[in-house]
Design a protein around this nucleic acid. Sequence first.
DNA 1: GGTTCGATCCTAGCATCGCTAGACAATCGA
DNA 2: TCGATTGTCTAGCGATGCTAGGATCGAACC
Lengths: 192, 192
Amino acid sequence: MSVQERKERERAARERLIVATARELAEQQGWDAVTTRLLAERIEYSQPVLYSHFRGKREIIGAVALQGAAEMAAAVRAAALAADGPRTRVTGLARAYLDFAERNPAVYDAMFQLDGGLAFAAEDTPEPLKDAFAALLESLGEVAGDGVHPGLFTEVFWAALHGLATLTRAGRLPPAEAERRVELLVDRLAMT
Amino acid sequence: MSVQERKERERAARERLIVATARELAEQQGWDAVTTRLLAERIEYSQPVLYSHFRGKREIIGAVALQGAAEMAAAVRAAALAADGPRTRVTGLARAYLDFAERNPAVYDAMFQLDGGLAFAAEDTPEPLKDAFAALLESLGEVAGDGVHPGLFTEVFWAALHGLATLTRAGRLPPAEAERRVELLVDRLAMT
DNA sequence: GGTTCGATCCTAGCATCGCTAGACAATCGA
DNA sequence: TCGATTGTCTAGCGATGCTAGGATCGAACC
């Protein structure tokens, strides 16, 4: 059995290598540069090996997205823990969210802009995605305000952050005043 | 000269046909289906003809985006005119925006999700895009609140709408409660 | 220890993509 | 009427995601 176990370990390691390499390549040169040929060359295997781990390129993007969701959830929770009041917690959360999107644009794209073949807002939504939303909900729920459903409030706040993140990164919003936009958003949306 | 004018007219008509066909095809089967071959076949010309009008597929997407921006500006202004108070105006604007995105998903993608090679938030931003932002500003500026820059407020409100539009359409947000999210957003953001 | 057999991987290739070169035909000016 | 110009098409290039089928390697059995 030991031989088989070793093979499984090696196989899992190679799968992690694929995901990590795809992510690295995407951050360096954009997702367009992540071709199956280049990716295969980087991991020093032939193309078909990729397809023994993933159904196709979509699933590789999906794997990067899940990894990113876990990291984002951690980043958001860390920011929330570092703050003391509900208000500063929300501001910190917003900054952490936008900061993550800015520092990991390719991962953010994998999560929300590209098709990673992942289910959302459904029963079969992968755990990391549900947990990332839960991380937002934990801090945002307490500032939803009276009579407002915490989940609904979180959705709206999240959408606003997502809009700021994508429009800023696409050059639709001047980056200079990003901080003022965050302050305005928190000022108005959060009921403290 | 008349002959040359006729040719120019016909050429302009063909260009409109290309844009209209690309848009139609994108709305029916998604932008992935808008290949240069299929598009050429639909307009009953060969592929290279497309490149005598546009630099490439990107520019065709850009042309659809500009068309969409003009329509969206008109839709937003119409909604604003139909309302009487600042508050109902903002609500109507928000509904019109999201309605446009929902009814014209491919056009909305061309405007904000895909690369149409268009400049934003810069001097060389095409007029229709600046005008679409201006249409939002006209109604949103009056509810920015004291001491808040109308442009900045418009940017934040727009980002929130954009986030709602994209996340809803991507299946990230359940469509059922879309209306309640709009109400919450307007309630909190608009100072009336 | 040699042999068999299954798992693993690679070479080669398919269909399709955006885009372009060069041949061909239609039209215009002289 | 004839050359030149303009316009269009056929054919093809390089690159893409993905796959079929053969080669190779290692584990397991007599």
